[in-house]
């Protein structure tokens, strides 16, 4: 009897799915076995990907088979990688600081720049331009809908920001209370936050439900192969 790859993968998929479902009765060895196997397989796969798709083609291969210029350029990431690798040894962990500092610095700069240029300013502009009726017309959106949507977004943005304004003055009895107007806006902002979190929850549930359905279909398909 020749076992096909689809049968093997289908069987493993079915078994590990049951192992994961076993978590319904609590933490158990089956669930742990499945988790450990997934972690191990993922790590091995990631390591192989890192070697085969990053280290070998982009570092080792140029160093070995590249030109002098390429080799020269590859020395910098090589030295940085070696220094970071020194973190394995506690006595040599300090040598990784330079590479880590370079990475963190460059990463922070890229992140901050991307956040400001790609999120903060565009979001502010988007909140303002939502009242652009011409743009709305260009996008086949009615002005009323555009204004309503813009008003809701604007109110939600402001009230949500006000909700995170925790400045307050102490009262005579020692309690802290914000201004009444701030309290009112914060209450509205809390509604927006609630709606947002509800939406997120619904999205998570929808995603999880879809994954659950996919797993059940997978099991049904596996079982259907033997029927």
């Amino acid at each position: 009897m020749v076992l096909s790859l689809d049968l093997i993968t289908g069987l493993l998929s079915f078994v590990f799915t049951l192992f994961i479902f076993s978590y319904l009765i609590g933490d158990n060895p089956l669930f742990r076995i499945a988790v450990y196997i997934f972690v191990g397989v993922s790590s091995g796969y990631i390591a192989s990907i890192a070697w085969w798709q990053v280290i070998w083609p982009r570092l080792i291969n140029p160093l070995i088979f590249g030109s002098i210029l390429e080799k020269g350029f590859m020395l910098v990431p090589l030295i940085g990688a070696i220094l970071i690798f020194m973190k394995i040894l506690p006595r040599m962990a300090g040598m990784a600081r330079f590479a880590m500092a370079f990475m963190v610095g460059v990463g922070a700069a890229v992140t901050i720049y991307g956040a400001v240029a790609g999120t903060l300013i565009p979001q502010v502009l988007g909140t303002i331009n939502i009242f652009d009726l011409l743009a709305a017309s260009a996008r086949n959106v009615s002005p009323i809908e555009s204004i309503f949507n813009g008003s809701v977004i604007l109110a939600g943005t402001i009230f949500t920001l006000i909700y995170f304004h925790f400045g307050a003055r102490p009262k005579a009895d020692g309690s802290m209370q914000r201004m009444r107007l701030i309290e009112l806006f914060a209450w509205v902002g809390r509604i927006f936050i609630g709606i947002t979190l509800g939406t997120v929850f619904a999205g998570v549930y929808a995603a999880a439900l879809t994954a659950f359905i996919e797993r059940i279909i997978s099991i049904i398909n596996f079982i259907g192969n033997f029927l």
């Binding site: 790609g118 999120t119 565009p122 979001q123 502009l125 988007g126 909140t127 331009n129 939502i130 743009a135 949507n149 977004i153 947002t196 939406t199 997120v200 619904a202 999205g203 998570v204 929808a206 995603a207 999880a208 879809t210």
Partner: peptide, 26 residues
């Protein structure tokens, strides 16, 4: 995007940084 990431990606669509958004199974 997945349905769980749609609420956070929706603002980028509203700001026109994203031209179209298809979320989840729906």
């Amino acid at each position: 995007s997945s349905a769980q990431a749609a609420p956070m990606i929706q603002p980028y669509y509203d700001s026109r940084q994203v031209s179209g958004l298809v979320t989840g199974l729906y």
